[in-house]
Amino acid sequence: MDPLLTELKDLFSAVDPVPAAVTAAALNAPMVVRRSGVLGAKFLRRDGAARGVRGCGRLRFRTADCELDIMVDRVRDSVSLRGMSTVPGTTIRACQPVGGGTAVVDESGQFLIDGLRKGPLCLVVQLPTGSLLRTDWWVV
C-alpha cells in the first residue's frame, strides 16, 4: 500500500473509530431481517427521492397491484407515516430494527403509522387478497 494511504488509514482508525453501537447494530442485522419476515415478498418500487421541506418528505411506491403515497413527518426523534393507498383494507406494517407499527388503510384510502423511530425502515403490505408486498429498506 502507498505510504500516504497507510498514514491516512492509521490516522482515520485513531481519530474516527467505528462506534460500538454501529458494530452492535451491524451484528444484529440478520435478526432484523428475519424478524421483519419480508424475504420472498414482491417489491414495491420507490419512485425518486423524497420531496418536500426539511423534516417532512414525500415518497411514492408502486407495483401493478398497489400504489402508496407517503408523507414522512419527523419531529425530533419521532417519525410518523401518513399516507394514501389505492387499495382500502390493506394492512401496512412498518418494520424497524427496534419498534415499528401497523395500520389498516381505511375506506377513503388513508392510513397513519406514528411513534416510529429515526432509522432504517421497511414497509410490508398485505393486500385484502392476501398478497404480500414490501418496500426496500430506507432511512427515515
Binding site: 454501529v22 442485522a29 432504517p120 429498506w137 432511512v139
Partner: peptide, 10 residues
C-alpha cells in the same frame, strides 16, 4: 450510523 446499519441489513 443509520447508513451503516441499512447497508448491513441489505
Amino acid at each position: 450510523e443509520e447508513v451503516c446499519q441499512l447497508t448491513w441489513i441489505r
